[in-house]
Structure formats: structure tokens, C-alpha cells
Write a protein that binds this DNA or RNA. Sequence first.
DNA 1: TTTAGGCTGTTATGTTGTAACATGGATGGG
DNA 2: CCCATCCATGTTACAACATAACAGCCTAAA
Lengths: 167, 167
Amino acid sequence: MTVQADPDTHEQTACVAQGIAAAESYCLDHKLQFTAVRRRVLEHLLVEHRALGAYEILDRLREEGLGKQPPIAYRALDFLVEHGFAHRIERLNAFVACGSPGRSHSPVFLICRKCKRVVETTAAVVADKVLGEAAKSNGFAIHNAVVEAEGTCTTCVSDTDLPEKAT
Amino acid sequence: MTVQADPDTHEQTACVAQGIAAAESYCLDHKLQFTAVRRRVLEHLLVEHRALGAYEILDRLREEGLGKQPPIAYRALDFLVEHGFAHRIERLNAFVACGSPGRSHSPVFLICRKCKRVVETTAAVVADKVLGEAAKSNGFAIHNAVVEAEGTCTTCVSDTDLPEKAT
DNA sequence: TTTAGGCTGTTATGTTGTAACATGGATGGG
DNA sequence: CCCATCCATGTTACAACATAACAGCCTAAA
């Protein structure tokens, strides 16, 4: 995936433009409406590169005059998630832009406790395989899997106290 | 882990007694108070063998005269989770009894969409290996991981569509 | 007996999410 | 052109999940 180290310069980077372009073309191809609200929500998610709560997004939409009530934000987020432009982070009740829009994948999320940044990485093959086996031996048919890990990212790990341990 | 096929006979099985006994002895060893509320909540979780919401548990405590307000349930659940007798299922905002209390493990949850049953299986490989690698290459130190898969269990997969949820 | 710690009781409120219905704009068939 | 249809948005109202903050109470140790 694309990783952007410096949030300050991030807003202007190709990251955002690429994400928007990908969504745009996908929507064109699939006759979906990439409306102002949906676009703006995706832009916010792309710019932040961290998980944003629905109400956090709603606040921004309000400031921009794009919507006032929760359903506005939730509907846009549902759309983005449904079509693979964003993911929901269960652990945080929040949403993050997808790092690989268009491609079907089994994302793994690394969530930094301190800065709340979310890195999406694809450990697809192994995760699918191992989970698949676990499911099979328990008679489960998996529709949808979530792998989320909370920890400390490189930039934050140097900062303060705890060196912390794995799982 | 222990899997219990028939919920009707489940209530009386060793499953519950074992879980309670494990918690009891752990609490003794660690000078923790295994109070009535905590015990009862764990019993409910063990009996159900599926994820229960905090308010669902609270309802039962109410019926039994063990508590009326949300904090009662949440505090008991926090205790159980903190000491490894239960897990929180992020995806469902709900809680389930731990299948391997006392042992440190990296649980994977298989959640049935229809009957809401939760099977806990230990695919340590997923957490340790896959996540470990992903984390390493992204400079993350993992504290805590969640692997949750939603799907359809054996008994429900045959039914095709309908009959959701047990209670 | 006093004190400190931990559990429970209670109020109040914060946060997240959705059901249900109304409005309005675009599009395509007649 | 007009209407039916679809889909997005606007709005109200509420449901579901969660916690802050403080009060009371019991027990165990000093």
C-alpha cells in the first residue's frame, strides 16, 4: 500500500488524487453516483490517513454545508465501504480510506494507539488460508473477516514510555 | 477448545462448571474477588455459547435482582475480559466466554450470522506469524490483536436463508 | 477502631447508529 | 412533453452501546 510519512504535506499529495480518481472511474464504470457528499467524505478519509468516526466526519460536512444529520454521514460511509473505497475499523467504530481500492483483498489493519494512524496491509494469502482452515475444521463458511491489531507505530514508539509486547 | 453442539443440553454440561471452576481458582490464586455478579455474568456467557450484549446481560441481572444500571454489567464484563475469562467481540459490541481461560492465547472468532453463535478457535499462527510479519515490516509493535470472521455455521448453513438468532 | 481499598448503587450524560418518512432531481418510456 | 421510477438527500425521532462521577458499604489489615 501507499504510506505517507508526513501528514502536513499529505493533503496535497498524489495519495488523495489517486484515491479520488480511482473512485471516480470505478463509479463511472459501474454507473454509480459519486456525489459531492461521497467525494468529500472520501477526501477527508484520504487526507487524514487515520480512522475517523462518523460524527467526526459529520462535523466536517456541517462546516462545509454538506449535511447536518447522522444519516448523511452514515449513508456516504456505507456507500464507500460497500464499494470498497473505505473500511470500517470495528475496534474503533470508525472508518478509514482503503489502501487498495478496486482490488479485492483481505486487509489487515495496524492501528497506532497514540497517533491513531491506521496502516492497511494485505496479509491476504496467509490470513485467508489459516482462517479458511480454522473455519473449515469448525464447519464455518466465512463471508467476511476482520483482522485488526492495535499497537504503537514507529514514530510513536520512540516518543515515550512503553516498549510494549506482541499479542 | 470445547465445542457444544446442542444448546438445549448445554446448560447442564461440564462446560459451565469448568469455566466457573477455572475462574474461581484463578481468582483465589490471584486474590481477586469472584463476586456474585461476576460469577453470574460468566455463567450466562458460558451457558449461551454465543455473544451477549451488555444490555442483554443487564436484563438478566435485573431479573435476578443483581443490578439495574449499565455500569453493573459493564464492570463485571470488564473484570472478566481483563482477567481472560471472556472476550469482547468488536464486530458485535458483545461479549463471549473465553474458551481457554488461564492460557494466554491469540483467539480467532468465528461468528455465525444467523444464530449468533461464536466459536473461539486458536489460530495462533494468524496472530503471531502473519500479524507479526505485517507489523514488523510496518514498524509496528503490536499490543493486542483481533481476528473476527463472520459467516455461517454448519447447523445454519443447511437452513438456507431465514431463521435468525437464538435467545 | 480506624482506615484504605475494592465492589456495588445511582444519576446523568455521552457516543454511535438507524428506522421511517418526506423532498427533490435526473432519466427514460410513453 | 409528462409522468413514473429510481436514487440521493433532508429531517425527525429514537435505539443501542458506553462511561464519568460520586455515594455508600463491606471487609481486611494496621
